[in-house]
């Protein structure tokens, strides 16, 4: 088991948002977590990554045999957890490629591997940018600064390609993308999926699932996963919306 979440509760500023989430992810799997706005699905991704705005009040998160709560955000990242941000942060003054080299070297160092010098990294990154069809000029610019929405999302997937995480949490990476950008991002995700890693795709829209085929689809509302199924569940949601599930749940 790569990730095992049991009865996870979390709150922000004292307001409960996650109210008992259960999820199991094995290597090689792609999971989609869908749900209406405000369901807690983005919060779930951020809590897994260790965002300081959220407090875990009860439950457990076990990643690769380790209790995630014992690890700081940076330690989780070095252990192979990756969060693609819904709103990637702009950091003017920090070069995109230097940032990624430092991040990669932290990960390599933690794994006991040799770090890459600037020239080695340059060769490596020039291969990786092809996965997201990105102009290498973005490497020399400041991190996400003055990038368009689509460029920011590509840059997130590029970082995933550079860091090769074991568990990728993609927080609405598809939102706001035009169809061309969506295809590029989806192809990147597919190309990076292996038998050893897993992807948890948090999304509001079914559309990306036409390009990335999930093994499991989960529906989250009001801070809990209330229904899980195969990829056909996404199609059903597309046709019928979320109301029938929430009604079903309320009836129980």
């Amino acid at each position: 088991m790569l990730l095992q979440v049991k009865d996870l509760h979390a709150s922000a500023n004292g307001t409960p948002i996650l109210k008992g989430v259960n999820l199991e992810v094995k290597p090689g799997e792609v999971h989609a977590i869908m749900g209406p706005n405000g369901s807690g699905k983005s919060t779930f991704a951020k809590v897994l990554a260790g965002h300081p705005a959220y407090e875990v009040t009860s439950g457990t998160m076990t990643y690769d045999g380790e209790d995630l709560q014992e690890l700081e955000t940076d330690e989780r990242a070095r252990a192979g957890v990756f969060l693609a941000f819904q709103y990637p942060v702009e950091i003017p003054g920090v070069s995109n490629s230097q940032f990624m080299r430092q991040a990669l070297n932290e990960r390599l160092k933690a794994a006991g591997k040799d770090e890459l010098d600037p020239l080695q990294f340059d060769d490596y990154i020039r291969e990786r940018v092809k996965i997201v069809d990105m102009d290498p000029k973005f490497l020399d610019r400041s991190v996400n600064a003055d990038f368009s929405g689509g460029e920011k999302k590509r840059n997130e997937i590029l970082q995933m390609a550079v860091l090769e995480p074991k568990l990728a949490l993609l927080d609405e990476t598809d939102s706001g993308l035009d169809i061309d950008a969506l295809r590029v991002v989806a192809n990147g995700i597919n190309e990076l999926s292996t038998e050893e890693n897993a992807v948890v795709l948090v999304t509001h829209y079914q559309r990306i699932l036409n390009y990335v085929t999930p093994d499991y689809v989960h529906v989250m509302t009001r801070g809990r996963i209330i229904k899980s199924g195969g990829k056909e569940l996404a199609l059903e949601l597309e046709e019928r919306g979320y109301d029938w599930i929430t009604e079903q749940e309320a009836a129980q």
Binding site: E72, T73, D74, R76, A77, F85, V89, Q102, E106, R107
Partner: peptide, 10 residues
């Protein structure tokens, strides 16, 4: 948080 989420310590 963004930097830390990429493995860079605080």
């Amino acid at each position: 948080f963004y930097l830390m989420s990429r493995g860079i310590d605080a």
